[in-house]
């Protein structure tokens, strides 16, 4: 079943066409990697899908419904969550609060319940907390226990990346967009996170799209690889197919100099 269906997506900034007619689809339960050289339009693609800016033209269908022009909070509510290339946590909130706040659109208690401290609110708060703790335990012992009440800014870089994924999971999305999840991690941490990305799909049932530069990660996790360059899709297929594709090699390495 197609979860995300994108037709002829255009977005330009001034004279630069970040997306120049992208067509692609993501099926439910897939792990898809989006790769491409710097400036290929990968992050712009995420930004347009999550409503950070509207596309100039084109259609984005999520589970059959158009999400073009929706507020990004509505898109999250519909079931798409993301992480950021340059980690953007709520640094002064604690680890637990970061994950709790992301459940905002799945919880209901309003000012009335809050001020009167109704049983409904107490129950919901307890649930929010329990769910946050459960999600953080997905990353083993790294973000649990005494870490719960530490401010996010005291975390190491790798832990910040993990926390960002946890935060995205907490909004209970169907589709998870991860923007360079292993950037800046050492090989051991990379290997560990690669395993976790598979678990995100296998155990948690998320459909995952990742932008990644580390080709080992791309090879290990992807069911399918989509290659962007200059705002258009230049190749698509399994890792092996794509890695031997002429156009892809050219995009990454450049055209061999014409001789003669």
């Amino acid at each position: 079943m197609v979860m995300l269906d994108i037709h002829n997506l255009h977005k330009s900034f001034g004279g630069v066409e970040a997306l120049a007619g992208v067509n692609l689809h993501i099926a439910q339960g897939e792990i898809v990697s989006v790769i491409g050289p710097n400036g290929a339009g990968k992050t712009s693609f995420f930004n347009v899908v999550t409503g950070f800016y509207p596309p100039d033209s084109g259609e984005i269908l999520f589970e059959g419904e158009s999400i073009v022009g929706l507020e990004s909070s509505r898109i999250t509510e519909a079931g798409i969550a993301r992480t950021f290339q340059n980690v953007r946590l709520f640094l002064n909130m604690t680890v637990l609060e970061n994950v709790m706040v992301a459940q905002h659109c799945r919880t209901r208690a309003g000012a009335f319940h809050a001020i009167l401290r109704t049983p409904f609110l107490r129950r919901e708060e307890a649930e929010i907390r329990a769910r946050a703790e459960e999600i953080l335990s997905f990353f083993g012992t790294r973000l649990v226990g005494y870490r719960f009440d530490q401010p996010a800014l005291s975390l190491s870089y790798a832990n910040r990346r993990r926390l960002e994924i946890a935060r995205a999971m907490a909004s209970e999305p169907k589709l998870l967009l991860l923007d360079e999840p292993v950037a800046g991690m050492n090989p051991r941490e990379t290997a560990e996170l690669t395993g976790l990305i598979r678990k995100l799909r296998d155990e948690r049932g998320f459909t995952v799209v990742i932008i990644e530069h580390d080709m080992r990660v791309v090879r290990d996790v992807s069911d399918r690889v989509i290659v962007l360059d200059h705002g258009v899709k230049i190749a698509e297929g399994s890792y092996d197919e794509v890695s031997s594709d002429e156009a892809v090699i050219e995009a990454y390495l450049g055209r061999p100099a014409e001789v003669g």
């Binding site: 999550t50 990004s72 909070s73 999250t76 969550a81 993301r82 953007r88 709520f90 992301a102 909004s171």
Partner: peptide
């Protein structure tokens, strides 16, 4: 903390 990210986390 960060308005843009708050929106992306589902806060209206």
């Amino acid at each position: 903390e960060d308005e843009t990210v708050a929106a992306a986390m589902g806060i209206n």
